[in-house]
């Protein structure tokens, strides 16, 4: 039995396999409508989320399975003080697979230690969000046709942005990749992330506080939101929130085939005027989230077309 707790749990071959399955689903969704018939997905969301929970539920429904679960801790037994391990030990008796989001970092790993069924980490605080990274990888593959020899700009909150850390880890395994890290001083990529995935592998990278300066180099621009919930101080949040806002003007010097990505939801870091630009890929990226989750559920449940 396999779980997915962090993106590095998957080899590059397994990622290719998931992307191939997801691409097959995108091309012929009707062939997958029954593959998870009589299987149940439990979505245990101890922290609110719209996109991730709905995409998991839509994924399971599109595979012919059913879903059950809760969407906030107050409507679960956690409100009565039940531990994660107890909740999961019980729920794994009712469902075939569990997707869990929890505000505490490492909660899905604890769940995996006590579960009789596969656990998918659907986000644990500011730590890991592997299915978002799989979504990002599917988007890159669909848009660029490859993972190697790409210059990837990551912009915004690179300190607390879990999607950024996971994407750096995942992309650091491909040849010819270069990272451009764009953030204010206070929100730079933590040194251990740089050390573990960039420096130790000899991957070229540059750090910049200006988005305009580095724009012409980029093949991919991955924008992120400065998240209120990651700050202990409201004052600090407000000061950094508007650090980088992507506008059509800033895209003047960008490549014609730039791919602009964002894990969503956005607040104001991408102006709505950018939405009509053909290089804006973020809504398509969100759509891909369902397909890659379908592929992942199939893999973990060991079902085939």
């Amino acid at each position: 039995m396999r779980h997915l707790i962090e993106i590095m749990d998957l080899s590059t071959e397994e990622i290719e396999e998931l992307i191939a399955t997801a691409s097959g689903i995108i091309a012929h969704p009707e062939e997958y409508r029954e593959v998870c018939r009589y299987k149940k997905l439990a979505t245990l969301f101890f922290e609110p989320s719209t996109r991730t929970r709905l995409s998991f539920e839509a994924a399971m429904l599109d595979l012919g399975g059913s879903v059950l679960g809760f969407s906030e801790a107050s409507s679960s037994s956690a409100a009565k003080g039940e531990s994660v391990s107890d909740t999961v030990a019980v729920v794994s008796g009712y469902a075939d697979i569990i997707a869990m989001r929890h505000p505490k970092e490492g909660a899905p790993m604890v769940a995996a230690m006590h579960s009789a069924v596969p656990i998918i980490n659907a986000g644990d605080g500011g730590h890991n969000h592997p299915t978002q990274t799989l979504t990002d990888l599917l988007t890159i593959k669909q848009k660029k046709g490859r993972f190697d020899h790409l210059t990837i700009g990551l912009c915004g909150d690179l300190k607390f942005g879990r999607t950024v850390h996971s994407l750096i880890a995942a992309m650091s395994r491909y040849e010819g990749v270069r990272f451009v890290l764009i953030s204010p001083e206070e929100l730079k990529v933590p040194s251990y992330v740089k050390g573990e995935y960039i420096k130790s592998r000899g991957i070229p990278y540059t750090q910049s506080t200006s988005l305009e300066d580095v724009m012409p180099e980029l093949d991919i621009l991955y924008m992120t939101r400065v998240q209120r919930e990651r700050f202990f101080s409201e004052e600090e949040y407000l000061r950094l929130r508007d650090s980088y806002i992507l506008t059509p003007d800033k895209l003047k010097n960008a490549k014609e085939d730039l791919c602009i990505m964002h894990p969503l939801p956005r607040v104001n870091e991408i102006s709505t005027e950018v939405d009509s630009d053909p290089r804006a890929c973020y809504f398509e990226q969100a759509r891909y989230g369902k397909f890659i989750r379908m592929a992942l559920i199939m893999k973990l449940l060991e079902v085939r077309k």
């Binding site: 531990s83 994660v84 391990s85 929890h102 505490k104 500011g126 730590h127 573990e196």
Partner: peptide, 28 residues
């Protein structure tokens, strides 16, 4: 923010992340 601060009966486990720097990191 770590789950070990709230979950009862859990083992506190650290892994050797960087032997040269003698750095250990929480597995959770």
């Amino acid at each position: 923010r770590c789950i070990t601060t709230t979950e009862q009966g859990i083992h506190h486990i650290f892994r050797l992340a960087d032997p040269a720097a003698r750095t250990y990191r929480c597995i959770y």
